[in-house]
Write a protein that binds this DNA or RNA. Structure first.
Length: 867
RNA sequence: GCCUGGGUGGCGGAAUUGGUAGACGCAAGGGACUUAAAAUCCCUCGGUCCUUGAGGCUGUGCGGGUUCGAUUCCCGCCCCAGGCACCA
């Protein structure tokens, strides 16, 4: 095989790639163990859901990770780079329902195929640490953690609602609700209240928030999103006395400055207080019908700005605690029961939703905030005034700026005993119950006598039974599996039933990175502390921006829980985070055949009917739009190195990547171009050592040498400081271009060839993390015996990289007018004088007054003139 | 709707801390090589105007502002994307 390559001299990616992949695997190059003598580096990419095939999003994510892993390894770190499978989840169940394949079989086959694809990409994983979350060896520990959380009150049960399809008699995920209708049967979706399990993430809310400012390695925007998601607000809990009893209605508000303008009270329709207030009254029927109607509405829709605000009067009144005015109480569709107290004071003049509601039901308006520039008239105002202003009609607070009065008003409520300052969070506890089959069973037994009883640790794992039939109808499949459900109570020994809910798959992805550190540990607690302490925390985590909030917040929470169990020693799991953008492509659509795959289009015509196709806008690659590119096809046509190179070159990691077929050709061409010039030099530089010392060189070789050192500098900082592989690659492209420019030195000119050798070796080493297969092959071809994987990253000499002459731009009033070349170390005064003496500048400045001369070191001179 | 980002040539992108806008690549055009084509190698390439020059003007979604100087900072607007608690 080598003979063929050598003879034809042609770049043959397939042969080279398969050869080196075999080599890496046989020599176990990427296997790692804990080594106290080396600095560890834990590089983690978000593990994939085994959907069947890897897609370009995976290829991009894992290529970015692989470059960093290989780079750090060349820098001398002991690099842990694992891979596994987020193997539980809904698509497996959907496949079972639609195609009759068992989720386990489907998942295993998908894993096998995707693993093959990942290996073919040449990623440097330590496959010995592979983890698959659907295996009992994995989820048994998760079940144990659940029991420990239950014991500490961190896992608890409460009622909450789910999307419910009355026809299929099953719970639907948000994704399975399309425009308020069930995606399978098309009937209207409603809500159903169930007893469900929750993790008390709110117990850690302050720490989760606090650490948002202690993670400098995370992108600012992710931290901002998490902070906003947690949503800490300082407000006030105010008690509104009922008009005709001693009861009070408590509301939470951050707008206590508007209290004097509160003219009515709103309660979430599904709040239990609603029916309490109307029981026995003539309007009970009417209210009950309204509540049922609201419960059937989608929460997102009914709280949206444009949705009709609706309510029903509850024939009850409370009193405004500062004005003692009677406030009618309504149940409303746009108030949510699970935020705050589920009751809100309505201030129609300064809240748009309340304003619309007041207009519809003819309720009073009192202006309490006046803008500085115009008076507000409650009779004529067309909408609520929500800006800042001066308080009016507000008793002793009149004349204060509303934002500045917030604290005084809260203090006043505390002093009169009708309220208190409170802290409110938007974050809610994490609902982990799923009425689904393909997930980790919750290890709980329900006993008629003893109630909720945890499964004893010794009985773990509660194994998910495999003999089930999935239909997509009639609720949880586990509930219909008698031998799973029927058990005995561990407490009293009487017949009892198992919990049939399974856990949210976000639970598995909240600790898989801990498991990788000791992937096959069979002793309690499933994690080998010495190993976990060596590797954790993850030094660099890489994944899609779409996980910026939920997955990352859950994983942070779970880590803190495990820390408090004494299993982990870190406060935060991920020191540095890189969130990559999505892979996008334009979609193509045929009027008859709908969306088309790229291979169904030839010369902008549909291959089925020859009609011209419509080119749609560029969107995230997805199966439904069929705007996907199959990585297998790319590997077959161009090889893994080209695929990797293109993904990195097309855009920086944090930005979306727009797919372009021509760009792939360009990447392939660059590898070929590099291959050709190095192979062309191979024989003459084979036994030459890279240039060293300070022998005087001819101009073009001196330039080549400078460019080489500049390139090492640029590529190193592009990778090290900001993971901008696109600019790193373009720097290497420039170096290759310069190498093409110089006349080929004579065979006997060993000094000039030594410079070429230094350049060639640098090119290969700089490209190693990016296109590792072709780099290995070229390295070998220029006469090296050792595999590249163990070679150090190249270093540069700042003295050689330094330019001797620099270009100074000359501007007049900020406009580019001329440029001059000066020695790099020229004095500022001398440069300013040279600039003003420049022929073109003299002409342009003539007859004008020079106001000042700005000099930006090593960049430009700006002459400011008047007249 | 709310939260968070983004918008630069025909296209992907570059400009790292307010200092030469368009690096590098793609596409396009031209040349060399070839019987020819492909491949390869070399050159040109934001728009516009004229007096064709080492030329002028203009140009980073739109409208303002700050500054000697703004793709970069500030204010307002438009458009696109991600997330919104059961897709992962």
């Amino acid at each position: 095989m080598e003979a063929i390559t050598a003879m034809s001299g042609k770049y043959n990616p397939r042969t080279i790639e398969e050869k080196w992949q075999r080599h890496w695997e046989e020599k176990q190059i990427f296997k790692v163990t804990e080594d106290g003598n080396k600095k560890k580096y834990y590089l983690l990419e978000m593990f994939p859901y085994p959907s069947g095939k890897i897609h370009m999003g995976h290829v991009r994510n894992y290529t970015i990770g692989d470059v960093i892993a290989r780079y750090k390894s060349m820098k001398g770190y002991n690099v842990l780079h694992p891979m596994g499978w987020d193997a539980f989840g809904m698509p497996a169940e959907n496949a079972a329902i639609e195609h009759g394949i068992h989720p386990e079989k489907w998942t295993r086959e998908n894993i096998a195929n995707m693993k093959k694809q990942l290996k073919r990409m040449g990623f440097s994983y330590d496959w010995d640490r592979e983890v698959s979350t659907c295996e009992p060896e994995y989820y048994r520990w998760e079940q144990m953690f659940f029991l420990w959380m239950y014991e500490k009150g961190l896992a608890y049960k409460k009622t909450s609602s789910v999307n419910w399809c009355f026809k299929c008699k099953t719970v639907l995920a948000n994704e399975q609700v399309e425009g308020g209708l069930c995606w399978r049967c098309g009937t209207e979706v409603g809500e159903k209240v169930l007893d469900q399990w929750f993790f008390r993430i709110t117990a850690y809310v302050e720490e989760l928030l606090e650490y948002c400012d202690k993670l400098p390695g995370w992108p600012e925007r992710v931290m901002t999103m998490q902070k906003n998601w947690i949503g800490k607000s300082y407000g006030c809990e105010i008690s509104f006395p009922m008009a005709d009893s001693d009861d009070v209605i408590k509301v939470f508000t951050t707008r206590q400055d508007t209290i004097f303008g509160a003219t009515f009270m709103l309660i979430a329709a599904e709040h239990p207080l609603v029916m309490e207030l109307v029981t026995g009254k003539p309007i009970e029927q009417e209210v009950s019908a309204f509540v049922d109607k609201v419960k059937r509405q989608d929460k997102m829709v009914r709280t949206s700005e444009y949705y009709e605000k609706e309510g029903v009067f509850l024939d009850s009144y409370c009193l405004n605690p500062v004005t003692d005015q009677k406030m009618p109480i309504f149940a409303a569709n746009f108030v949510l029961a699970d935020y705050g107290t589920g009751c809100v004071m309505a201030v129609p003049t300064h809240d748009q939703r309340d304003f619309e509601f007041a207009k519809k039901y003819d309720l009073p308006l009192i202006v309490v905030i006046q803008p500085k520039d115009r008076p507000l008239d409650p009779e004529t105002m067309p909408e609520a005034y929500v800006e800042e202003g001066i308080l009016v009609n507000s008793g002793q607070f009149n004349g204060m700026e509303n934002m500045k009065a917030l604290d005084s008003i809260a203090t006043y409520f505390e002093s009169i005993g009708r309220g208190k300052k409170t802290i409110q969070y938007r974050l809610r506890d994490w609902g982990i119950s799923r009425q689904r089959y393909w997930g980790a069973p919750i290890p709980i037994i329900n006993c008629k006598k003893c109630g909720t009883v945890p499964v004893p640790e010794a009985d773990l794992p509660v194994v998910l039974p495999l003999d089930v039939v999935l239909t997509g109808e009639g609720g949880s499949p586990l509930a219909k599996h008698p031998s799973f459900v029927e058990t005995t109570c561990p407490s009293c020994g009487q017949p009892a039933t198992r919990e049939t809910d399974t856990m949210d798959t976000f639970v598995e992805s909240s600790w898989y990175f801990d498991r990788y550190c000791s992937a096959h540990h069979t002793e309690k607690p499933g994690l080998d502390k010495t190993k976990v302490d060596y590797w954790m925390p993850v030094d660099q985590y890489i994944g899609g921006i779409e996980h910026a909030i939920m997955h990352l917040l859950y994983a942070r929470f779970y880590s803190k829980v495990l820390r408090d169990f004494g299993i982990l020693s870190v406060d935060e799991p991920f020191t540095n985070l890189l969130t990559q953008g999505m892979v996008c492509k334009e979609s193509m659509r045929c009027p008859t055949h709908g969306y088309l795959f790229p291979e169904e289009v030839e010369e902008e015509k549909c291959v089925h009917c020859q009609q011209p196709v419509t080119i749609g806008k560029t969107e995230k690659m997805s199966k439904s739009l069929k705007n996907v590119v199959d990585p297998d096809y790319l590997i077959r046509k161009y090889g893994a190195d080209t695929t990797r190179l293109f993904c990195l070159f097309a855009s920086p990691p944090e930005k979306d990547l727009e797919w372009s077929d021509q760009g792939v050709d360009g990447a392939f061409r660059f590898i070929n171009r590099t291959w050709r010039i190095i192979m062309d030099y191979r024989d003459v530089i084979r036994d030459v050592k890279p240039f060293q010392g300070d022998a005087e060189l001819p101009e073009d070789l001196k330039n080549l040498r400078r460019k080489t050192h500049q390139t090492i500098k640029k590529v190193t900082s592009d990778i090290e400081d900001r993971f901008h592989f696109n600019t790193a690659i373009s720097a290497v492209m420039e170096l290759v271009n310069v190498l093409y420019q110089i006349p080929k030195p004579d065979k006997e000119n060993r000094i000039d060839l030594a410079v070429v050798r230094e350049t060639v070796e640098s090119i290969i080493l700089l490209l190693t993390p990016i296109v590792p297969h072709v780099a290995e092959e070229l390295w070998k071809n220029i006469g090296h015996q050792n595999t590249l994987s163990k070679i150090s990253w190249p270093t540069y000499d700042p003295a050689i990289a330094a330019e001797e002459e620099i270009t100074i731009v000359i501007q007049i009033n900020g406009k580019l007018r001329s440029r001059i070349n000066v020695p790099a170390e020229e004095e500022a005064e001398a440069i300013k004088n040279l600039a003003q003496a420049d022929e073109k500048i003299v002409k342009l400045v003539e007859g004008k007054q020079i106001v000042k001369v700005v000099y930006v070191p090593k960049k430009l001179v700006n002459i400011v003139v008047k007249g």
